[in-house]
Design a protein around this nucleic acid. Structure first.
Lengths: 337, 337
DNA sequence: TTATTATATGTAAGCGGTTACATAACAAAG
DNA sequence: CTTTGTTATGTAACCGCTTACATATAATAA
């Protein structure tokens, strides 16, 4: 394995010059540069990461932390976001280290190794993460961004999708299709995404002259637990038992909608004729289930790429004021509505 | 940030001694060791990875490569295996670097960065991967293992699940339930897992006196494309159109089975009464769909952990003869059979 | 012409660890 | 009391790179 000394010797220059060539620095004569390049090529020389990192005191790593339950969920939501970051990172100088944290998180014991050893230049936190973890990062001064999450009363660098408008548009489509009694099924309502989707749902109905607080009381099923098909099942059971002439359901996400669909089937209720169903996220399964699910597509890879951009920007410029990137979403019409 | 010099000075010893303490080496007096330990504690000293790596010439990284399409699939199969490796790695000295490769893989252009820069001590390849990639690793002498894959006529270190016996047992259960006309639906039959499952299916039927080559011709639907719900849909269509009194289907995996279930529903065929369906893998969705899917559970986390064990063993001992770890699977009875 | 500035290259000191080797201390053996 | 062997500790070179600084050369200005 060739090193910088071999290259320098063979090119008859000093290692400083080789270093300048590698890093595309000024003050290298064109001829010298070409000479060095050709030797690098010939020897198949690649600089050693650990040596660079030691010398520059950057780690070249970015941490990606996601709550274990989220990563194991049916939907590949966060895995796709991770992949989006990975796509960006591989074209640059970073590795992305993925790890999960537990719900019951204790910064003393459960700290990801790359944090304990300060072996990352920055961290991306995907989805809901323990508050104590965020506090730890702030105290340690490690740059971080939140993806698809937010903390009340705290401004952080973050990347989110346009939950409010996505929901607003989706509900608008439902209304336009002639439905009047539109339910909402949602889990983990403390989650800002779910909150914003609920807000979009309500605001649209209000603007269409359909909803008031009594309406929302009747037509909302909210549970403060992690979203799952189970929530959808419970939601359908509840809404139907109310006898309120339910003719459509907007679910806080596709996973929940899957449960709702299966439960409606049990009651032999025709979708979308009797009750139409719309989800949010556009997970892979949504186009495969029957009937295929109308939903709001969230561009996961794009979120990942934007996250990478933002995080590296913050790493390079740690004292900039916090920014929030909002990623556009798109309503997808399928068979369930 | 404290370094080894700070610790040495404060503990009134040399850095060599501190290094010995960190690495639990012999020849340190108990008193000295305690002293150094307490200083390390006090200064919250953590050794710097890049320095260790530079000095020891190991990278501390393990590469995890999976084909992009696989990682993006509905099923979280390989993500879970990755996670299993991650669980093991975080308790030791390795980071796992995940990356995907394209179908059309060109070693000159598409080489993962950690390979190009020789920045891993070993690599785990999950699922089907380009042959050219494997050849590259062999030529470069980079230790690697195959997970859930194998190459004809080549013995590699690998971790696989017991596909043959899993299929054998599953089909045995179907037969015991009284079914006689049992179809097989499978995609990508070049994949050794699918092959072995098909072999298990056939061998069981033979041993139960049910199948001969004519039977298998009639009851098999094999397509040489990546498995997907679509394959299941096509398979059901095909098998039903044959008018062969189909009363059960064994699918090469759950994803395929999902498609089969949805298609059977379209025909209003009762599952499991008229046709029972059994899958393989036990993806999360399998317990949520209706009817819930009988399947063969593959312990994904365990596969990941075993992969880690095997790979690190090979890294430590590169010239050992290739081994194959076979992970036990378990039949899970649910509603679809 | 000489002073000044921009460009080009080299020298050597780190970065924070590991480790071969030298040496010191001490106990057991002769 | 020396000799020998074991244990304990220190010294300094080295891993492969970056970079501040010194120096040399070429181009431009005075």
């Amino acid at each position: 394995m060739a090193n910088i000394n071999n290259v320098a010797k063979k090119a008859r220059v000093s290692i400083a010059t080789v270093s300048r060539v590698i890093n595309n620095k000024k003050y290298v004569a064109t001829k010298t540069r070409e000479k060095v390049m050709s030797v690098i090529e010939k020897l198949d020389y690649k600089p050693l990461y650990s040596a660079i990192n030691l010398a520059t005191k950057r780690t070249g790593n970015i941490g990606f932390i996601v709550w274990g339950e989220h990563f194991s969920e049916i939907e590949k939501f966060y895995s796709q976001i991770f992949l989006g970051m990975e796509y960006s990172a591989r074209d640059s100088d970073y590795y992305i280290l993925l790890t999960t944290v537990k719900e019951k998180f204790n910064p003393k014991e459960d700290l990801p190794r790359f944090l304990k050893y300060k072996d990352v230049d920055g961290v991306a936190l995907a989805g809901r993460v323990p508050t104590s973890l965020i506090e730890y990062l702030e105290n340690q001064g490690i740059p971080f961004i939140l993806i698809d999450y937010g903390i009340p009363d705290k401004v952080c660098n973050s990347v989110v999708m346009d939950n409010y408008n996505g929901a607003f548009q989706a509900v608008d489509q439902i209304v336009k299709s002639g439905k009047k009694n539109i339910g909402f099924i949602g889990g983990s309502y403390f989650h800002p995404s779910v909150k914003d989707r609920y807000r979009g749902y309500k605001d649209n109905l209000k603007s269409n002259g359909l909803g008031d607080s009594e309406y929302f009381d009747k037509f909302s099923f909210l549970k403060n637990v992690e979203t799952s098909p189970e929530i959808g099942i419970q939601g359908v059971k509840h809404l139907l038992s109310q006898n309120i002439g339910l003719d459509a359901i907007f679910c806080c996400n596709d996973t929940t909608a899957m449960g709702a669909l299966s439960e409606l089937k049990k009651y032999n209720i025709k979708v979308p004729k009797e009750v139409s169903v719309v989800g949010f996220d556009d997970i892979t399964l949504s186009s495969f289930c029957t009937p295929s699910l109308s939903t709001v597509r969230v561009p996961k890879l794009e979120i990942g790429k934007e996250s990478y951009r933002l995080l590296t920007e913050i790493i390079a410029n740690p004292d900039s004021t916090p920014q929030t990137s909002i990623i556009d979403v798109e309503y997808i019409q399928r068979r369930s509505s």
